[in-house]
Design a protein around this nucleic acid. Structure first.
Lengths: 348, 348
DNA sequence: TTTCGAATTTAGAACGATTCAAATCTCTTC
DNA sequence: GAAGAGATTTGAATCGTTCTAAATTCGAAA
């Protein structure tokens, strides 16, 4: 009794039904494990399913049931280890719940984000997990995804405001507390002239992280010179490029709190190129604790955000929202933890 | 003329048709830019589409047309930067072609791989890009995905053999040449006692990489002692753990060719723990050239595989296969390039 | 005014599942 | 052996599109 590996035509419920002399409806009941069908019939149908190599067509079922079994995940850049871990966590948790992940990537461009969202939404995801690109606007995102599909925002706020009827949940990191801890640590090490490096101020996470730095500086009675703030794209290369501006702005800086780890690693690269030694004559802190942070030279002091756990959490939020579409939207702030390594040396 | 943001019911072709007094068929033609419809009618329909905030239901269209607009991507571990870059490349290229990526992750377990494939296939992807887990068998994968969905294998071969009718393309790295180059480089540096570290021999890539090492050693007239080969899972942690076995096997080894960068980084960690200094008294090479390779201490000599470009290439292969389902299956071997950094020091 | 062909539009049957209400089958029980 | 109650099974409509074949409209030529 060889199994039928029909290369030509797709096997449907009709084939199975015909194959064992029951109705399509019965086969459907068997598939979904309904207690209604007779034990004996069930066995016969299951044999036939196996014999013909049936595969369930979830799209057809979703169409009829007006449900969805997918969730879209849109991140800025998958190659950033922070987002890679996050995505891995999302996918893991969604998979366990029987959902599949539709992937999209915005490359930090709000126009690409719009295009990606518009395309993904046509595939009818049950919900969307979105880590907004820099400068992404609430109205634009709403226009792309419509009001029917729930959204969980991760990591950043959108610009502008959302109409009331859009119940969008948020999963944010405790950005401000994070950079405050990092700054306090640097101050405790003896630094006084501390810059804030990288990120763009049109992203909310960047503003929040700056606020934490500012708060710690103020609390310690330290004034911040305007040129201690240098922006850059949140990538290693652009941070390395921008290093010059930081050093040129005030050559007497002894430390910098960085927007994230990618930026911090770029800054360390840039410092080396300028003949400075990060971890010896210049202290650096990051944000995210990506895997590379512990391997860099010197190992990077940073804030651990457990991105994989955050991914799982985002998945759980969107799944919960699917259960309770009308529940009030909530914001979860995930804690961060300071991980002290050697890049945050005391001043010489 | 405010736009209708109907939160309650999904807008369908019928709504649009009714809204501007044409038939459903006409609206469908407009949507797909058919030249059949009258200019004037088209404009009227397009206005109505906008006004009602219509979103296309690709699932329904795919059902009717018996087509698919998604490709499944199954990797071992998304958090591995090599695969993250690969996935980013795949998603990029698929997106440009109007396809969406269905993500799946096997965690190097062939049973999870089977489960993930079985689940993904129900969503009806047009094709599958699979980077097999260690020990994954051709028959098992075929059973999960069936013979109707084309597959592109990346990076590793499957165990066992595939029936003829399954036209599966392959995208492989030039593994053997890669480790041969690395080994030759170490020999040129003056090393004679060189081990091969990490990976499991039930993965084809591991066997091929070992073969390249063996080939170079033989060509140089160097015998290989059996305990110069130590296996480990292809992860940093397991490699660090296995370091002991390598050093205990032969304390006089002066260099090791590693299965991949993750393993090499783990080995460097392990060496440090054993009081050895990678890049000074022990030479190490990796494979993949992940972003961390250039940042590790010391920077890692490795083989660049351009994973993002490989991702794009895999996407192109599967898209080409969709055009030509009956074409003969092919194997593409992507070149690799030796990147010499400081971890491959000469012997002391 | 008729007629013919080209240009437009449309009715209705798919696609592969689910779902209800209704039909049928099987037992008990009287 | 008929009735009634469960237990099973099923026909037909439906989800939101596409597509074929046929219907309709239109304008120009006869």
């Amino acid at each position: 009794m060889e199994s039928q590996t029909s290369v030509d035509r797709k096997i449907t419920l009709n084939d199975i039904a015909a194959g064992c002399g029951v109705s399509r409806a019965t086969v459907s009941l068997v598939l979904r494990g309904s207690p209604l069908v007779n034990k004996h019939t069930r066995a016969r149908v299951e044999d036939e399913l196996r014999r013909q190599g049936y595969v369930y067509n979830r799209a057809a079922a979703n169409l009829r049931r007006r449900t969805s079994s997918s969730i879209a995940l849109v991140v800025n850049e998958l190659a950033n280890p922070f987002f890679a871990e996050f995505a891995a966590g999302v996918d893991e948790a969604l998979g366990e719940a029987g959902f599949v992940t539709l992937l999209g990537s915005s490359g930090e461009s709000s126009s690409r984000e719009h295009a990606v969202l518009s395309s993904l939404i046509e595939h009818g995801p049950g919900g969307i997990i979105l880590s907004p690109a820099e400068g992404s606007e609430a109205r634009a995102v709403l226009a792309a995804v419509g009001a029917r599909t729930p959204v969980v925002l991760f990591n950043r706020e959108l610009g502008g405001t959302l109409p009331e009827y859009a119940h969008w949940d948020r999963l944010m990191l405790d950005n401000q507390r994070g950079t405050r801890l990092a700054t306090e640590h640097l101050i405790a090490q003896g630094h006084r002239r501390i810059g804030f490096f990288g990120g763009h101020d049109d992203s909310s996470s960047s503003r929040e992280r700056y606020a934490g730095y500012e708060q710690a500086m103020q609390a310690a009675g330290l004034a911040i010179a305007p040129n201690w703030r240098v922006e850059s794209a949140p990538t290693r290369v652009d941070a390395a490029r921008a290093t010059h501006a930081l050093l040129a702005g005030d050559a007497a800086l002894t430390a910098a709190v960085c927007y994230n780890d990618a930026v911090a690693l770029g800054l360390m690269l840039g410092l080396n190129q300028h003949g400075r030694q990060p971890g010896r004559d210049f202290a650096v802190t990051g944000f995210d604790d990506i895997a590379e942070a512990s391997l860099s030279m010197p190992p990077l002091t940073t804030l651990s955000t457990a991105p994989r756990a955050r991914g799982r959490q985002a998945a759980e939020l969107i799944l919960a929202r699917l259960q309770q579409p009308q529940a009030k939207a909530g914001t979860v702030v995930a804690p961060v933890e300071l991980v002290v390594r050697e890049s945050s040396c005391p001043p010489l």
